[in-house]
């Protein structure tokens, strides 16, 4: 055994060769093992000197083996890492992100606001009857107020609801006050279709009934909603108007900055008022007051996101739908 051995270890080309060297030197029948085994046969003085030399030798070989092993492993790792290198600037493989419809996004945003204000979300049928859509909401038969809601009648005498207000009646018929509810949903008007008018659109309506709900509570609720949507300092305005199912009735507007023009102005949003006594009468409520307010989702969505043609919202054109990815 000489320095060639250490040299062989230091230049072993791979881990297998190195292992072979380890077996040859340190294995059960390896050179050094055999040398150590044969020590017993030597006389004591020679055994000590020889033993010391052999052990010294074994430590040197072991150290050389470990060093070479570490070097080879590092080289192998380096080679593997180099081989596994990837260009991470190439596009990933993926399913493109999905998208909620813009109207769903706007509705969800509003529903979140109402949920935080303690409202229950309820929904109702789109195909309605005269009583729920008109009669119980104090639209007398043959009253011109019905002309303000151009109605799609069905051949079997039903109608497509012209507003979400029938749910006021349905909810009150099956629940007892006090409550706060909000009703999102699709509604229909038999009007000429153009860039700003569709025969179907969406509304959101809130109804609060309790022992003594006031018109100031109504204004407070609208202001809360506007604040949640647009931030603090938002102003709201009520102007008198007429809807058969509220008295006093009002239209409401919120003061905002138009996203396109940047001008601050009133955004006329919807109608509101105190629930008409005849509506309470129709559902069998006594001794309570309440307010309701409602507005169109499309208008809010269109001015907020600068959609110029309402019909684009219902065409299912991916090029439009995909633009509203990722937000919910």
């Amino acid at each position: 055994m000489n320095d060639d051995t250490l040299h062989a270890i230091a230049t072993a080309p791979d881990l297998r060769e190195l292992q072979a060297l380890r077996v040859r030197l340190l294995g059960k029948k390896g050179e050094l093992t055999e040398g150590l085994k044969s020590l017993g046969a030597l006389p004591p003085e020679e055994r000590r000197a020889r033993g010391a030399a052999l052990h010294e030798r074994k430590r040197a070989v072991e150290a050389a083996l470990e060093a070479r092993k570490a070097a080879l492993e590092r080289a192998a790792l380096d080679a593997r890492l180099a081989a596994e290198r990837l260009d991470l600037t190439l596009p990933g493989e993926r399913v493109p992100a999905g998208a909620h419809h813009l109207l769903t996004q706007v509705t969800n945003r509003l529903l979140d606001v109402f949920a935080s204000l303690g409202y229950e979300v309820v929904v109702g049928p789109e195909l309605e009857d005269d009583r729920h859509n008109f009669g119980a909401l104090n639209f007398p038969p043959d009253h011109p107020a019905r002309d303000t809601q151009d109605t799609f009648w069905t051949t079997d005498g039903r109608l497509l609801r012209t507003h979400t207000s029938p749910m006021q009646v349905r909810y009150m018929e099956s629940h007892e006050p006090p409550f706060r509810v909000v009703v999102p949903g699709r509604v229909f008007r038999n009007e000429a279709v153009d860039a700003t008018h569709e025969a179907q659109f969406h509304q959101l309506e809130a109804l609060v009934v309790g022992e003594r709900i006031t018109m100031a509570d109504l204004k407070g609720a609208i202001t809360e909603m506007a604040t949640a949507l647009l931030g603090s300092g938002t102003r709201t305005r009520l102007l008198p108007t007429y809807f058969p199912f509220v008295e006093p009735g009002a239209e409401f507007a919120i003061w905002w900055q138009h996203p396109k023009t940047g001008r601050e102005e009133w955004l006329e949003l919807g109608g509101c008022g105190m629930v008409h006594p005849r509506v309470f009468e129709a559902v069998g409520y006594e001794g309570v007051t309440g307010f309701a307010f409602g507005f169109g989702i499309e208008r809010l969505a269109m001015v907020s996101y600068q959609v110029s043609d309402i019909r684009d919202l219902f065409r299912g054109d991916l090029r439009l739908l995909e633009q509203f990815r990722g937000v919910a």
Partner: peptide, 25 residues
């Protein structure tokens, strides 16, 4: 109306109502 709706303030009623956690939409 004649007094002016602009005189109506903003208040918040206290109602004993807790909405159930539903997901109708």
């Amino acid at each position: 109306r004649l007094h002016g709706y602009e005189h109506i303030g903003s208040t918040h009623p206290h109602l004993a109502f807790v909405p159930p956690p539903t997901d109708p939409t």
